[in-house]
Amino acid sequence: MELNVLDEEYMTSGHVACPGCGAAIAMRFFLKAVGDKTIIVLPACCWSIIAGPYPQSTVKVPVIHSAFETGGAVASGVRAALDMKGDTETTVVTWAGDGGTFDIGFQALSGAVERNEDFIYVCYDNEAYMNTGIQRSSSTPYGAWTTTTPGDEWKKLRKKNIVEVLVAHRIPYAATANIAFPEDLVRKAKKAQSIKGSKFLHIFASCPTGWRIPSESSIKIARIAVQTNIFPLYEVEDGVKYTINYKPKEFPVSEYFKLQGRFQHLTDEDMKHIQKMVDEDWALLLRKAGERP
């Protein structure tokens, strides 16, 4: 595999992410792509901690921590201020978890992208409120255990399809990415940076702690999510032009579930049901991409 990833690092060791943290990897790749003329708006999420306690900062770009639900709004302000200062070169990025994106921060995000603010909104998705200790979010997938969906009460609702919601805003660029596919991730981050207006990047970032997986399999499981079609890699330009970036191996979803503690309770029946949902979603995506009538 050839990786066109620059050797520059915009993060330092010594951050306090859990071992094998996908979110840390996601940030590392993303910063390599966008470089240091970048300001990060960081609403409450795991990264609020990973970034380092006062007086430390683990990234070599300016960061503004912000209230949980304000990712879109604070970034709008930073962008407006830079514009007023004549700085159109600096990239403004909101770096939010799934809670700050799908749920509590959704209004500010929707508002910002409706205004087509010139920034990149990155949601690194670990599929639950991990920083507070694994509580379900609207990004938590069907079938998952969390501390607020325990025992038989495991989540029996679909994960919100956030990219489609953003696409419905007709923003210039929306894409999924995955820490196991750095080349694709870096390309999309760079592409997002080159486009004016609102860009949304949905990065799948595994969470060993919350998913009950061994830390060493963090990348592997993220990769299987793509290979099984659970998390397809695609991008959408101007809300209409769909491109699927990776033709999955179409492994059965059980390949993905069997490796994770959070899905241990699922029966073969449940797997079949989930497979059906995944197949439906994939077929729908293929149609949108014009690859199936």
Binding site: T12, S13, G14, V16, P19, Y54, P55, Q56, S57, E216
Partner: peptide, 19 residues
Amino acid sequence: IPRSCESTLTNMTGSWRFL
């Protein structure tokens, strides 16, 4: 104010390691 300009390099996270 909580303005943080030092790196995290003083945190020797290698001490967490058991593998």
